[in-house]
Structure formats: C-alpha cells, structure tokens
Nucleic acid binder design. Structure first.
Length: 230
DNA sequence: GCGACAG
DNA sequence: ATCTTGTCGC
C-alpha cells in the first residue's frame, strides 16, 4: 500500500468513527484515567501511559505503560494513527477499567470531528474528553483572564469545543468532547481536575510517567502500581 | 497557489 | 513530540 492510499483509508475510518461519537452524557466518574505518550529521540518508538486517579481526591490508584514501535508518522489530523495504539495497549493493562478517559489531544475539535480522544473513546466505548494545548481547527475568541472562564471554539457554524482558562492569566487549554459526554461536563471535569497548573492533573501524571519509562527501562515498568510511581 | 497544522 | 540554560518572579 502506498502513502496516499493509506491516508484515504485513514480518512474513511475517521468518518466512520465520527458517526459513532455520542455528544451527550453526564458521567460522574469515581475513577478516571489520564492517557499520554512520549517518544524516543528519533521518533521511532512510542511509550504509552495510562494512569488511574480517584475522583475527586485525584490520588493515583494505578497505572500501566507500554513501549512499542511507532508505525505511523505524525501528520496533523492523523495523530491517532500514531499514538492511539500505544494508549490502547496501556489502557488494556490497567487492573480495572476507568469510568472516563482524559486524553492529550482533541476530540471532535478536528477537521473530520474525529481527533484521538474520539477515536479512543469510540473504540473502547468509554466516555472520553480531549484536552489540547493548541487549536488544530476552528477558531475562538480568547476567554476572560479569570480562572474557569471559557469561550466557544467554532467551525462551520457549530461549536466543536471550548477554550478553558485553567489558571488565571495563563494561556487556555482547548477542551472538546471525545465520546459519550457533553461539552459542559467535559469542561467541568477538566476544570475540577486542574490543580493550579495549566494542564489537568491526570494528563500531568500520565505525561511524567510516559517520559519516565522512556528514559528508563520500559521492561521494568510494564506493570506499575501507585507505590512504583516516581 | 498560500498558509495552517493536536503531539 | 524532542533538544536545551539560565532566568525572572511569586
């Protein structure tokens, strides 16, 4: 198969997944998972991390990681094909399934309404939220400078996400529906899992863990529990 | 054709 | 994403 053909298939799959996204729901998770990945210097390896946190204490109650070959390049709009396999593998190694997933990247705030958070959400059937640091598509006015202020991200005349100020006076993050949750609830959960930093706690922990296994020995961190965390 | 472009 | 030192500020 050649490059252009692979992308055509990817687009077909994204349209297909996008049709299955449920943009409503009000999950009240007692256990939530933060998912993120880190890459080797040459970008040939991906290290996925899934961390379980209790809500609302945000105590880490479990975690799992996986390292694998990166079999897809990074192409804006096709991010899930590069990173989702590692996230799904890590997720599958958790000792229990979370009630909700928070993923580093967009959900439906995507050209085809199928960012990685929707991709992983639909595949697993678990409610998911996408939290990104930069906009991929759509536009919005800057939210007020206060904590918790929001502004809609729109595209084609519809709201596809929200800019959310998790820390007063600091650049906002971009929240969007992944799957089986309303935008309002997604924003609320993102805000209430933010602990004084721009990035919400679940993603901060997942990010640190992914980088940690990358810099150490992956084999020693295939299964982790709270006590083994750095 | 030109610019934009999650991680 | 990743490389990379110090520095300014609370």
């Amino acid at each position: 198969m050649e490059g252009a053909e692979i992308l055509q298939n990817a687009v077909r799959l994204q349209h297909d997944i996008a049709r299955h996204v449920v943009t409503r729901g009000n999950p009240d998770p007692s256990v939530l998972a933060g998912l993120d990945a880190a890459y080797s210097l040459d970008g040939s390896q991906v290290f996925g991390a899934a961390v379980l946190l209790a809500v609302p204490s945000l105590r880490v109650i479990g975690a799992a990681t996986v390292g694998r070959k990166a079999s897809f390049p990074y192409i804006p709009g096709y991010f899930a094909f590069r990173e989702a396999p590692a996230l799904l593998a890590a997720l599958g190694r958790l000792e229990r399934a979370p009630d909700l997933l928070m993923i580093d990247g967009h959900g439906i705030a995507h050209p085809r309404r199928c960012g990685i958070a929707s991709h992983v959400g639909v595949i697993t059937g678990i409610p998911s939220i996408g939290v990104a640091r930069h906009l991929l598509t759509g536009r919005c006015d800057p939210p007020g400078m206060g904590w918790g202020e929001t502004t809609p991200v729109t595209a084609d005349g519809s709201v596809i996400g929200c800019a959310l100020r998790t820390v007063a006076g600091v650049r906002p993050v971009y929240v969007s529906i992944g799957h089986r949750i309303s935008l309002q609830n997604a924003v609320s959960i993102t805000l209430h899992t933010s602990t004084g930093f721009r990035i919400p706690e679940p993603l901060r922990v997942a990010h640190r863990l992914a980088s940690h296994v990358r810099d150490r020995d992956v084999r020693a961190f295939i299964w982790l529990d709270a006590d083994a965390l750095p």
